Amino acid sequence: MAKILLSIIIPTYNVENYIVECVDSLLKQKGASSEIIIVNDGSTDGTLALVEQHYGHLPQVKIITTRNGGAGKARDIGLDAALGEFVFFCDPDDIVADGFLAELQQVYQAHPEIDLFCFSSQMFEDGHRERIRPKVRHEVFGLQPPQKVLSSLLRNGSYTSAAWNYALKKSVATQYDLRFVDRVHEDHKYTLSAFVRARHAWVSKHVYYYQRVRNGSLTNSRKSEEYFLQRYNAFMHAFSTLKHALDTSPASKALEKDYLMHSFRLMIYLSLYNGTPVPEYVINAIRFMGGQHEPANIKEWLLINRPQIFIMLQNLKVTKELKRAA
């Protein structure tokens, strides 16, 4: 039996309209041996029937059914079952472009030391594949220190904690016991750990991942107060992971600041686009945690020292954008 290079894990819940397109895009990949692990997270629609009908006979596809426990738990189940050198988490309504597996194979043969494979991504509107816009935008390429890759994404504002952002060598996940936690924001700590625990990364110049934006999905619906509190708690847990993994070098301190600035801005924008006030605990964190770092420009100075003014200015920008989109 050929050694499996990549295990593709798909947490799946009530996506009968999308799962076939997703899995078909993965089956078209050419290159090394791979396996697709579909974890049916207690779907109540026709998802499981479709998966079994289309893929139940394929030896490279594993179908696991479990009681509904959320995407994080489903990913952990898939991770435990994975036999590949690398693991890659794909959302069930998204699409992976041709060439992904072939480049991973080529790069790993030339650089067996890599344990993180990164690539850019785009978003597209459900039902309109032609309407795309950038998501993850890499600016450094080839063989890179993972923390440099992370810092670059944080600084250009395109970092995402989404688990489909990379393929990670499974031995890294095993060595550091990387798991997904909670039903909401479950990937923040896992993804940050992947970047700070990996030793060597390869960054592709290609866009390989296409994220579908659809009405009614968790990422595209109105958020509750509980959502924002869970998001803040996920940030705090992830930041604690970052602090424990880094040393006291200037580069590490710069990465710590990059993560804080990115996270503060993101939590502010989440509230503004939701039409709700920025929570006071976020503003307090900005003052206390941000105040321990030297601002690099006037925007950072405003964010850290006058967060209410920064929020007011950003709200004007968001209001204009929402009016144009209406």
Rank of each mutant, 00 (worst) to 15 (best):
S217R: 01
F195Y: 15
T191G: 05
L242K: 04
F195C: 05
E226F: 03
G216C: 09
F235A: 01
S224L: 08
H206R: 13
K205S: 14
A198I: 01
K189P: 00
E226A: 14
N220L: 02
W202K: 01
H200N: 12
R231Q: 10
S193Q: 15
E225Q: 11
E226S: 13
L242D: 04
F235W: 11
F239A: 02
G216S: 08
Q211R: 15
H206C: 06
L242C: 07
S193T: 11
A234R: 01
N233C: 06
R231T: 03
L242S: 04
H206N: 13
R222T: 06
A238L: 05
G216E: 09
L242I: 05
K223S: 05
Q230F: 02
R197E: 10
A234M: 02
S221E: 09
K189A: 11
H237R: 15
T219H: 10
Q230Y: 02
H200M: 08
T219V: 08
R197D: 06
V213C: 07
L229A: 07
F235P: 00
R214N: 08
A201C: 10
N233T: 03
Y227M: 07
M236I: 10
S221W: 06
E225P: 02
F195H: 11
K223E: 06
T241Q: 13
R222F: 06
H206F: 07
G216Y: 11
Q230A: 10
A238N: 06
F235K: 00
T241I: 03
Y232S: 03
S193D: 13
A198G: 02
M236A: 12
L192F: 05
A238W: 03
K189I: 07
T219A: 14
G216A: 09
S204P: 03
S221N: 09
A234L: 02
Y190Q: 12
Y209C: 01
L229D: 11
A234N: 02
F239K: 09
S217G: 15
Y209N: 00
N233R: 13
Y210S: 13
Y208N: 03
W202G: 00
V196N: 03
F239P: 00
A198M: 04
H206Q: 15
R222S: 11
R214A: 14
R212H: 11
T219N: 11
F235G: 00
R197G: 04
S221P: 04
W202Y: 15
A234G: 07
F195D: 04
A194S: 15
H237T: 12
M236F: 07
N233P: 00
S193K: 14
K205H: 14
E226H: 09
S204A: 12
S217W: 03
A198Y: 00
Y209L: 01
Q211K: 15
V213R: 10
R231D: 12
V207C: 15
T241N: 13
T191V: 12
T191Q: 08
A198N: 02
H237G: 03
V213G: 01
F195K: 04
E226N: 12
Y227P: 04
A201N: 10
Y227Q: 07
K243V: 14
K223W: 07
F195W: 10
E226G: 03
Y208A: 03
R197H: 15
L229V: 05
E225A: 13
K205P: 05
Y227F: 15
Y210V: 07
T219P: 01
Y208C: 02
L229K: 12
L229S: 10
R212Y: 04
A194D: 08
L229G: 07
F239M: 09
V207F: 09
M236T: 12
V203N: 07
Q211V: 10
V196T: 11
